[in-house]
Computed example of a mutant assay.
Amino acid sequence: MSRVGKMPVAVPQGVEIAITAEQISVKGALGALSRPTHKLVTVKNEGGKLTFVPVNDTAEADAMSGTMRALVANMVNGVSKGFEKKLTLVGVGYRAQAQGQKLNLQIGFSHPVVKEMPAGIKVETPSQTEILIKGADRQAVGQVAAEVRAIRPPEPYKGKGIRYADEKVSLKETKKK
């Protein structure tokens, strides 16, 4: 059995879980998430702990038990604590401004770029060069952060662009004559 799949998921106080044959629904203070269950994994709720048991002894069922456990653990974490990604803007005159569900970026183009946030994702700008993307769904937060970064990724010579806060950009040396 998968080492990850063997570990139970502890359900914190204030988080409700509904398990049906087709899906798992998790509801908490920061929202509600649901995910379809896999036919090779049986999910059980035993006294505030979720266990994931493979239906048979195949390698696929074993792998899917660990995958389902990780996905549900992220759902439980998301509705109780939430996830966030921090981006920084590097460049002269580069700035960001959050207006409700829109992110306005001035990043060296001839026009401002407006990025619409999907449902369940909040965006904040603590300063003009910092962007905080928050939400309950880990995958959605990471995807939106990647889309914002892709608007102007860091270039390799001066490092200008949008980067993750913990990202290290290795700069190339300029051409010598």
Score class of each variant (00 low, 15 high):
Lys85Asp: 05
Ser170Asn: 10
Ala21Tyr: 04
Arg163Glu: 02
Gln128Ser: 14
Lys175Gly: 01
Pro153Lys: 10
Ile162Arg: 00
Gly108Phe: 01
Ala96Pro: 02
Lys44Thr: 14
Ile133Met: 04
Val55Asp: 12
Val43Trp: 03
Gln101Trp: 03
Phe109Asp: 09
Lys49Val: 13
Lys27His: 02
Pro12Ile: 06
Leu50Pro: 03
Val9Thr: 11
Ser110Val: 06
Gln23Ser: 15
Lys160Arg: 14
Gly14Gln: 05
Gly159Glu: 07
Ser65Tyr: 00
Asn74Ile: 00
Pro54Asn: 02
Leu40Trp: 05
Gln23Gly: 01
Arg163Gly: 05
Gln97Thr: 12
Val53Cys: 01
Val72Cys: 01
Thr125Trp: 06
Leu89Pro: 02
Thr42Tyr: 00
Ala59Ile: 15
Pro12Cys: 07
Arg69His: 14
Gly93Leu: 05
Ala145Arg: 03
Met68His: 02
Ala70Leu: 06
Ser2Phe: 02
Val4Arg: 14
Ser25Cys: 08
Thr174His: 12
Leu171Glu: 04
Gly135Lys: 07
Gly28Phe: 04
Ala98Tyr: 11
Lys160Val: 09
Val43Met: 05
Leu171Asp: 05
Val53Glu: 14
Val26Leu: 09
Ile133Val: 15
Arg3Ile: 10
Ile162Phe: 01
Thr42Val: 13
His111Asp: 12
Arg35Tyr: 09
Thr42Phe: 03
Asn77Thr: 10
Thr67Gln: 08
Asn104Lys: 14
Ala150Lys: 15
Glu116Tyr: 05
Lys172Glu: 12
Glu173Val: 04
Ala63Thr: 04
Glu130Ile: 09
Ala136Cys: 12
Val53Ile: 14
Ser127Met: 06
Thr88Asp: 03
Phe109Thr: 04
Gly142Leu: 10
Ala119Val: 12
Gly47His: 08
Ala73Ser: 13
Ile131Pro: 00
Val114Asn: 01
Gly14Glu: 11
Val113Asp: 08
Ala61Asp: 01
Gln139Val: 08
Gly100Val: 11
Val113Cys: 03
Glu167Trp: 05
Glu22Asp: 15
Thr88Trp: 00
Pro156Gly: 02
Lys158Glu: 10
Pro126Ala: 11
Gln101Arg: 15
Arg149Met: 11
Asp57Gln: 13
Phe83Ile: 08
Thr129Arg: 09
Val76Ser: 08
Glu173Leu: 10
Gly48Cys: 10
Glu60Lys: 13
Ala96Ser: 15
Thr67Ile: 10
Leu103Gln: 13
Glu16His: 06
Lys160Ser: 09
Lys158Trp: 00
Val123Ala: 12
Ser127Asn: 14
Glu46Phe: 02
Val92Arg: 10
Pro12Asn: 06
Ile121Pro: 08
Asn45Val: 07
Asn45Pro: 02
Met117Glu: 06
Pro8Gln: 13
Asn45Ala: 15
Val144Gln: 15
Lys177Pro: 11
Arg138Asn: 11
Val76Arg: 01
Ala73Glu: 12
Val114Arg: 08
Gly78Leu: 04
Lys175Tyr: 07
Val26Ser: 00
Lys134Phe: 00
Gly5Trp: 01
His111Val: 13
Gly5Ser: 10
Glu16Phe: 00
Glu155Asn: 13
Asp137Met: 07
Glu60Tyr: 10
Met68Arg: 01
